[in-house]
């Protein structure tokens, strides 16, 4: 990777077309993976609210998908879910 010189950087280090962080995947941090059980889900959206990585997508008030490209495997979603509709599964090495 070739680093840019200061002359190539935008003035004031202003980043436009935000957010740009999705270019950086954080999914490989995890050692456990959430397993979503749709039959148990009541779509109360608590997992969406508390997912620190915005890795749970919601569409029209319903859970749409878990984005494992960014999920860091913290397990807050599984621990917060009153319906036990999410289980954390240890990744095999």
């Amino acid at each position: 990777m070739k680093f840019k010189s200061w002359k190539d950087l935008p003035e004031g280090a202003i980043v436009r077309d935000v957010p740009t962080s999705p270019e950086f995947k954080t999914g490989d941090w995890k050692s456990r993976t959430p397993k979503y059980i749709p039959e148990k889900c009541t779509h109360d959206l608590l997992c969406w609210l508390y997912c620190p990585d915005s890795a749970i997508h919601v569409k029209d008030g319903k859970i749409e998908k878990f984005d494992l490209d960014y999920c860091k495997g913290c397990g807050i979603c599984a621990s917060i879910c009153p319906q036990d509709a999410i289980e954390m599964v240890e990744e095999e090495v």
């Binding site: 957010p19 962080s21 999705p22 490209d69 960014y70 913290c74």
Partner: peptide, 11 residues
């Protein structure tokens, strides 16, 4: 909220 891909600790 914040976009995915930030580097906050898991949890």
């Amino acid at each position: 909220g914040l976009a995915s891909g930030h580097r906050a600790c898991a949890g």
